[in-house]
Simulated scan of single mutants.
Amino acid sequence: MKKMFLILGMATGLFACSGNSSKQAESTAETTTPAATEEKAPAYDPERGSGKFTNVTVSPTLDKALADAGNKVYDVKCASCHKLSDEKLVGPGWKGVTTRHKPEWILNFVTNTDEMIDKDAKAQAMLELCMVRMPNQNLTDEEAHSVYEFMRKNDGVK
């Protein structure tokens, strides 16, 4: 009797597993087939990165109110991983960041973090150096602009 239950159990297991694998193969084929109506993605621009910021105009003088708002965002969302010096904490230090990257690149990176890390060579190099993927902080456009202005203040813009 035990033998019969064992054989019945094995047969049921084999039947159940074989049925799912064909459905899984069908399902995978459906999801990997591209739709005929998909548009080709625009070419990636390493100077501005990937995201909605394409042409950012920056004032030669600092917007103090915006920089102060950016300081508050930094304190809450950025300070645990980034120092204001050039010293690495978890992520790279912020000193000089506005001279190393264009405003569009920085704004796209802080608002479109995952795609930038996946596509951008500079972001990938930072990931290799820091060995921790920056989490998406879900910054609004306004928060991103204020953080950028705070970065400029940190870099000595008056």
Rank of each mutant, 00 (worst) to 15 (best):
A16I: 01
N138W: 05
N108G: 06
W105K: 02
F109Y: 09
V97C: 00
E47H: 10
I7T: 15
A11V: 12
R100M: 04
M134L: 05
K77T: 04
L62H: 09
Y44N: 03
C78M: 09
Q24P: 02
L107I: 02
F53L: 02
M126G: 00
D118S: 07
S80P: 05
T61Q: 14
N112C: 02
R133I: 03
A79H: 07
M10K: 10
T140I: 10
S21L: 13
M1G: 15
E47S: 13
D86M: 09
N112F: 01
L14M: 03
P135M: 04
L6I: 14
E38A: 08
E104M: 08
L89A: 11
M4R: 15
T98L: 00
S85I: 10
T32G: 03
V110W: 01
I7H: 13
L129W: 06
A25L: 15
A29H: 11
P135E: 06
M1Y: 13
A65T: 12
D68H: 03
T33W: 12
A79S: 13
K52M: 11
Y148D: 07
G156A: 14
D75A: 14
V73T: 12
I117K: 00
D75L: 13
T37C: 02
E115A: 01
F15G: 08
T12I: 08
L8P: 11
L62I: 11
T28R: 13
A69R: 12
L139M: 06
R48S: 09
P103C: 05
A36F: 06
E26D: 13
N55H: 10
V56F: 06
K83E: 07
N138I: 02
G91K: 00
C130A: 04
T31G: 06
V97A: 01
